[in-house]
Amino acid sequence: MADDDRPRTEASDRTRRQQLTPPSLERQPLTARNRAARLRADYSRFYRDEAAHLAGFLIMAFGASAEDAWDATQTAFTSAWVKWATLSDSRKARKAWLRTTASRAYWRLSPDRAHLSNDELPDHPDTSLVPEEVMALADGTAHARVMLDALPQTQRLHLTWHLDGYTNAEIATQTGKNEAAVRKNISRALTTLNLKFKAVSHDQ
């Protein structure tokens, strides 16, 4: 084949491939429909990855039952979907927003929860709707939650944020406290838990 014919042949091949490629496989412009589909897919992936972890956060931070934690998780994700297009693309920032929103939802679902002990809380009617993963998480952390019950609520909340990988500054922003107070609460929580662990080990 002559060299002069090669570019023409390659151009013809490209044209033929384009004609045989289904429109669905071509790179489509970012239309409103495509943008909405991408948002739904992004939200669905994030929900699958994070919903159980969010419920676990509520269980550890507040001693929530699996059922109440799951209710608050669903409420938070519903709110997230409404704002999904405007939320930060940062995964950590999205998780922080959801934790704050779910925490508020948890208390709002039962306004007098603060006046009840865990033993006095009513049974949730929709136990069967809670994913097995969340139920297993609640069962598996029962001992840890007994230890956390010894902490004041603010110390417990800040420690749970800390264990989730957030900095003192980030925790302060999300919980409305100053950074020095967050640092002190985490330090006191860890000291209390350390003393309790030592006491348990000594008893054994």
Rank of each mutant, 00 (worst) to 15 (best):
A51L: 00
F77I: 11
A172I: 09
D203R: 15
T101D: 07
Q19M: 08
E120S: 09
N118Y: 03
W97M: 04
R27Y: 10
F57V: 08
A136F: 02
L98Y: 08
P125T: 11
D68V: 07
Q204D: 10
A41L: 07
E67I: 03
Q28F: 01
T9K: 15
S103M: 08
A2I: 02
S79V: 07
E179G: 01
T167F: 05
A180K: 10
P125A: 05
S24D: 12
S79K: 15
R108D: 13
S117I: 07
A76C: 06
L151G: 08
A105L: 09
R48H: 14
T192I: 05
L190H: 01
A61L: 04
R27N: 13
L98V: 12
L129Q: 05
S201E: 13
P152L: 04
M60R: 15
L137T: 04
Q204P: 00
D126K: 00
N34I: 08
L54N: 04
T9I: 15
P111H: 05
R45T: 14
A150T: 15
E120I: 02
Q18K: 15
I171W: 04
Y166G: 04
A114T: 08
R188Y: 00
L58G: 03
R8S: 09
Q18W: 11
P23T: 15
R183G: 07
R14H: 14
K177G: 01
S103H: 10
N194R: 02
R183I: 03
H162V: 09
H158C: 14
R113L: 07
R45P: 00
D49T: 15
A150P: 00
A36H: 07
L163V: 11
K184C: 00
A69M: 07
R113S: 05
L151H: 05
Q155A: 11
L129H: 01
N194W: 00
P22V: 01
A66T: 09
I59F: 02
Q174G: 02
A136P: 00
S117N: 12
V134C: 03
I59N: 03
E133R: 14
T86P: 02
L121N: 06
P111R: 13
L20Q: 12
H158M: 03
V130M: 02
A105N: 09
R113H: 07
T173D: 02
Q18S: 13
D3F: 06
A172S: 09
D203I: 13
D164W: 14
P122Q: 11
A61M: 05
